[in-house]
C-alpha cells in the first residue's frame, strides 16, 4: 500500500504479471517506480482485468480513477482514427519497420494526437506481429474462404476478414480456446506469445506465419493528471517510463521467437509462406487500405511505406 503524501499511480491491465510481454513490462515499471521514487510516488498494478478490462479502463482514466493503462492500439481508434494504421493488414513489413514508424515524427505525433480528448500517449509497448491460425491449412487467402474467424471489435479487422472471404466473429476472450476447440469458430489471429500462452495452437490445424498485422499496446495516461504533477516528479516518472519501454521492447522479439519455438516444441504445426503466397495475401488485403485511407491519412501510410522500403 502507498504511504501518506505519495502520488498514487494506479496501473490497470489485463494480462498476467510475469509471462506476458505487457505484464512483465508493467511489473518492471512498478518495481522501478516504487524503488526509485519512494516517498514521492507509489504504483499499484491491477493485472488480469481484476479492476478494469481494456474497454472500460480508458473511461476510468478520463474519470481520474486510473492513471496508467496499456490497451492494444485498436482501442484508440475511438479517440482518433489515425490509430487504424496499426490494424491495416501488411502495412508494416516486420517489427523493425513498426518500431521505426513509431519512432518517426508521424509515430511520435500520434502519441500527442489525443490530448484534446484527455489522453497522453507515453510510449508504444510491443507485443509483436500477428499470425493466423485455423482448423485447416492456410497458405493463400482463398484458404480462408467461408471460415469463421474470431476477431477483436475493430472495423479494420472486420474488413480484413471479409477481404479474405472469411466471416468475422465476436467472442469473449475467455471463450476463444473452447470456441476453437469445439468448432464454434474456425480460426483466429494473434501474436506468437498469445498463441502459445493461451494454447490456441493445440486446438488448431496449424499456424501460418503471416506477420500480417501488429499487436502493440499504447501506454497512456490522463493528460490533466500528468500536467498536475510536480515537475521533478513528472520528469523522473517519464524517464523511468522511457527506460522501461526501451528495455522491454528490445526483449519482445525474443519473447515471441521463444513462444514460436515453444509452439513447435509442443507439437504445433507452423507454416511459412513463400514470397508468392505472401504476395497473394498482400494483394487480397489491398482493398482494405483503400477503405480506410481517409481515416488513417495518406501521409501516414506513405511514411510507413517509406520505412518498409528503407529497411530492405
Amino acid at each position: 500500500a502507498c504511504d501518506e503524501g505519495e502520488v498514487v499511480i494506479k496501473f490497470s491491465h489485463v494480462t498476467n504479471t510475469d509471462k506476458h510481454p505487457k505484464g512483465i513490462a508493467a511489473s518492471l515499471l512498478e518495481q522501478r517506480v516504487n524503488d526509485e521514487m519512494n516517498g514521492k510516488a507509489c504504483m499499484e498494478v491491477f493485472p488480469n482485468s481484476t479492476l478494469y478490462n481494456d474497454d472500460k479502463v480508458l473511461e476510468a482514466m478520463l474519470q481520474g480513477d486510473v492513471q496508467l493503462a496499456a490497451p492494444s492500439l485498436s482501442k484508440f481508434e475511438k479517440f482518433t482514427k489515425q490509430f487504424r494504421i496499426f490494424d491495416l493488414p501488411f502495412m508494416f513489413k516486420d517489427i523493425t519497420a513498426v518500431e521505426a514508424f513509431q519512432a518517426s515524427d508521424a509515430g511520435q505525433a500520434m502519441l500527442d494526437s489525443m490530448q484534446k480528448r484527455g489522453l497522453q500517449g507515453l510510449g508504444y509497448w510491443h507485443n509483436g506481429m500477428k499470425q493466423m491460425s485455423a482448423n485447416k491449412p492456410l497458405l493463400v487467402p482463398t484458404d480462408a474462404n467461408g471460415l469463421k474467424f474470431r476477431v477483436q471489435s475493430s472495423d479494420v479487422l472486420v474488413a480484413q476478414m471479409e477481404a479474405m472471404g472469411a466471416s468475422p466473429q465476436k467472442m469473449a476472450f475467455s471463450e476463444v480456446y473452447g470456441g476453437l476447440q469445439q468448432g464454434v469458430v474456425d480460426g483466429q489471429e494473434n501474436t506468437w506469445s498469445n498463441i502459445y500462452g493461451k494454447k490456441f495452437f493445440e486446438v488448431q490445424d496449424g499456424t501460418t506465419e503471416t506477420d500480417h498485422g501488429i499487436l502493440d499496446y499504447l501506454l497512456v495516461t490522463n493528460i490533466d493528471w500528468l500536467n498536475g504533477l510536480d515537475a521533478d516528479v513528472r520528469d523522473q516518472f517519464l524517464t523511468i517510463v522511457h527506460e522501461v519501454t526501451e528495455t522491454r521492447n528490445k526483449e519482445s522479439t525474443a519473447v515471441n521467437q521463444a513462444a514460436k519455438e515453444s509452439v513447435i516444441a509442443a507439437g504445433g504445426v507452423v507454416r511459412e509462406l513463400t514470397a508468392e503466397q505472401r504476395q497473394a495475401w498482400v494483394d487480397a488485403m489491398k482493398p482494405v487500405w483503400a477503405k480506410f485511407e481517409g481515416d488513417v491519412g495518406t501521409d501516414n501510410i506513405e511514411a510507413a511505406q517509406k520505412i518498409n522500403m528503407m529497411s530492405n
Partner: peptide, 10 residues
C-alpha cells in the same frame, strides 16, 4: 446467421 447463412450480426 452464423450457421445458416455463414454470416454474422456483429
Amino acid at each position: 446467421a452464423r450457421y445458416v447463412f455463414n454470416s454474422n450480426i456483429f
